[in-house]
């Protein structure tokens, strides 16, 4: 089984896309419905880019690929993402 890290490792690349930190947001898996902070997802860094998988069912939640000046983000496996309202 390839080694994995966790969703904390997504903070840098996702900060290029979102204005708020997404790793503390709660994500709902599009397959099994498990809801957990993005930081608790399993992140596989050895694929091209970073692949985040559901900690319960292993479903692919998100894929981030950086290639030169392009960043490609797939959130197809995520049902919902719940962020805390930005603090004033």
């Amino acid at each position: 089984m390839p080694r994995h890290l966790d969703g904390n490792a997504l903070a840098g690349v996702l900060s290029e896309v979102f204005t708020a930190d997404v790793t503390a947001a709660r994500a709902r898996c599009g397959n099994c419905g498990n809801t957990a902070p993005v930081a608790e997802a399993m992140v596989y860094p050895d694929a091209p880019g970073l692949v985040a998988r559901c900690v319960r069912c292993n479903h692919v939640l998100a894929v981030v690929v950086e290639a030169g000046d392009r960043l490609v983000l797939s959130l197809a496996g995520l049902d919902t993402l719940e962020l805390r309202a930005p603090r004033a």
Binding site: N8, G12, S15, D21
Partner: peptide, 9 residues
């Protein structure tokens, strides 16, 4: 350096 990063941990 790019940060600060992360608000979970």
């Amino acid at each position: 350096i790019h940060g600060p990063l992360g608000s979970y941990f």
